[in-house]
Design a protein around this nucleic acid. Sequence first.
RNA 1: GUUCCCAUCGUCUAGUGGCCUAGGACACCUCCCUUUCACGGAGGAUACAGGGGUUCAAAUCCCCUUGGGAACGCCA
Length: 491
Amino acid sequence: MSEIRVRFAPSPTGYLHVGGARSALFNYLFAKKNNGKFILRIEDTDQERSTHESLKMMVDDLNWLGLKWDEGVDPLTLKDMGPFAPYRQSERLSIYKQVADEILKNGKAYYCFMTDEEIDRQRAINQAEHSYAHIESPYAEWPLEKALTELKNGKSAVVRFKTKALKKDYILPDLIRGEVRFPSDMVGDFVLLRSDGMPVYNFCCVVDDHLMKISHVLRAEEHLPNTLRQMMIYESMKWPTPQFGHISLVLDDDRQKLSKRKGAVACDVFKDEGYLPEAMNNYLALLGWSHPEGKEIFELKEMEQLFSIDRLNSSGAVFDRVKLKWVNSQHLRALSSEDLWNLIQPHLQKAGLVLPQDQAWQLHSADVFRSKMEIASDAVALYTPLDETRFAIAGESTEVLTWPTTKVVLQTWKKLLVDFISEYLSEEDFVRFENEVKIQSQTKGKNLFMPMRVAVIGKPHGTELKILTPLIPVKALIARAEKVLSHVESL
RNA sequence: GUUCCCAUCGUCUAGUGGCCUAGGACACCUCCCUUUCACGGAGGAUACAGGGGUUCAAAUCCCCUUGGGAACGCCA
């Protein structure tokens, strides 16, 4: 059996979309599972919109996800890497030109001199008559020589593929959908080469897939109609077609194709918010694929072993950010304290929090907060009460501070702290202190713990004190208690 | 409008003719744990779009209807 070769072929005209990431993932997994090659090809024939920054961004995001490719552009230098170079379509123009000439010579394509106005007019008529919105070019049957002469005289033309003669159904054996039957007149004479000589997607795609010996094309369902055009091109060149599999779409909660307007869809946004790449891959895989044992949480390596096209679903899947978060929280829990700290640290720094530098404190804090975070950026809210410079008495605390028993609670708490000798309280110390306050102040329930919480974080609600207090130096706890106490007296 | 695709709990899904009075996960609700919230634990409610066939037997196969989606570019 010949080698399995698959590709992900983004056009660098923006960010990497989560739908794109999912396609890349499935291609990657299919290659890994079958000891094949995963190729990253750059479809940059739209020179207006393709940018270097976008390419860089996509490469970075793919790297972040850990979907390593075997051929394509080098992840660091962006230079070509692999035996079928170049992998950027903008550098393969002469190849497309050659193939186009051959199709032209065979009479399967023609130069079309229609102007934009002529085309618009035809479309308008078609629409009014509710007929097929295909254009009918008067140049379809021109001999090649005649067209070439016009071209020499300075006229400009696109190259169109001739579909008229192809009166038959095309049957696509789709790996995911079974047999898909297209009537040949489903598409009109489509463009192969633009008037400036730049090739168009459907054409490059076929030429490259063939030349790069792509064995399987796994791509989103929206390409289904393109596949008919591509099959026609393969046929005209007498090239064998690769196997196609059309993956269901990722949808918004209104069941339309996922779009930016309804929330983040760019991979790097999730990266910046503190999602783990393993969680992204895990969740994206769950959109259309299922683990054979029904597992919900798994690593990339496991998917590489288990992936199969058979388990891909053919219906569209709604992108559920809530479940994504949950998946992320599960992966967060599996992290070592050190990895977790390294993950959240940049978020804390970005928020400008002033926190202790010693490693034991850092690891301990990461550990106790672990189960309270779903994504890394959640850490900011969790750590903010630990920043001495940010301590403030919130307005919502006022009611608590006016309770008759509050003052004695605060005084007792402060006294216990002042008499304490170590730098930090342990969890046990805190529990003991709390009990002590309870006895001495003769309070219980929320009359006890709400004033205490205000004394520690300035607010009556928040993380358990037995977790928080061991992370705040006793000196600071005393200072906070004093502030609150003097605030009570000023009321 | 035309062509194509799709159709199991709110969402992601398991299910490839009998194991299905339909299983799991997220979300939701109740209770337990907890001197708040959360975490964790135990329960609960909720789905085979409708109608015809085929078959001893249909969520599973076929047809129709309905609903949803995508594509109809000198974008990819």
